[in-house]
Design a protein around this nucleic acid. Sequence first.
DNA 1: GCTTTCATTCAACGGATGTAGAACGGTTCA
DNA 2: TGAACCGTTCTACATCCGTTGAATGAAAGC
Lengths: 193, 193
Amino acid sequence: MDGVSESTPRSSRAQQRIDTQERILTAARQLFADAGYDRTTIRAIAAAAQVDAGLVMHYFGSKEQLFALATRTETPLVTGETPEEVAEQLLGVLRQSLIEEPIGSLAVLRSMLTHPDAAAEVGNAHAERVKVSKAIPGADGNLRAAVVSAILIGVVLGRHLIKLDELADADPEQIVELLRPAVLSLTKADQPE
Amino acid sequence: MDGVSESTPRSSRAQQRIDTQERILTAARQLFADAGYDRTTIRAIAAAAQVDAGLVMHYFGSKEQLFALATRTETPLVTGETPEEVAEQLLGVLRQSLIEEPIGSLAVLRSMLTHPDAAAEVGNAHAERVKVSKAIPGADGNLRAAVVSAILIGVVLGRHLIKLDELADADPEQIVELLRPAVLSLTKADQPE
DNA sequence: GCTTTCATTCAACGGATGTAGAACGGTTCA
DNA sequence: TGAACCGTTCTACATCCGTTGAATGAAAGC
């Protein structure tokens, strides 16, 4: 039954390699999020992972490739049908991002602004817009979706990165409540005047 | 009447020094906005200003001080009394920031996310929040003001820095229209249910 | 005209960084 | 037990950066 019992011992070497790689990735994610791409050095990542800098290179090839792997993030789902459902799902994503720092996204966001190649990742990290735009009716659905994304990015950024005092200290639920009308006004189609 | 006619000749040395300093400051502003603090080198600024790197140091002391001087920006006024007036003024600031890149602000915004000391500048650059919070009634006026600031930052950032396609290409006026209800919902005080 | 002043350039240093390759030491396997 | 393997560290190199101090040459003042 257990075909790997003898040929691949679960610990000691194969596993330790994987553990070490994961330790490096975790340290990289955290440091990239805290300090951005440029200010994060391979040596610092190695130190945080209690490893030599050369090993990081050996495993990941270059700082560039390590960054790409460390900041890969799965995009949240937006599957709602009605504007209200879409709005609630977006607010749910926001709530989660306010409660705990979305480390991968922060790393990308922070780095994107100084590191050219990171910008490409944003289309990926926030590809939710694509789905959002399909869920928002009207000819300007795409634009509305982009504006909503920008708003959410701005608020998350204001809380975790810029750390605007009021935003950083406030109750997440209160922020969500304040934003509900704003998000709703954007997920609903134009109403003729 | 003209006390400076002879004692301070307007050109040649005093003036050329001022001109050169201004040329350096302009180049610095642009480069900091384009590439952020870390990726902008003194040598690149000097080259853009057609000057030696040593001269930049000689005039501004350090990269740090140059950054502080180059990104100093005057804060827009928000003096409205009613929620509607405040909202319109905020939307006006947004409109202007969408039409032409606010280079100083972009430089701060971009650098702030990787350069620690730049963060302090944000309180200055967006000190408008203080005035906004006074113009927004209710116990949560401060929080509302912060949320509005975050939203505006997010949208400007989405257009000029992240360059979300739809946001970058859209008509500024259309974006402003989309955001009016959102901003209005935040400048108005809570209405009891 | 000679000296002083000063805007500007030149050359260099010390440190940090990404990266490459040799070397080490324990594990695996015959 | 001895040889091959491999995870890991050590050492070093080339480059780039911020910064400095001496050198240069033209303008200013006497």
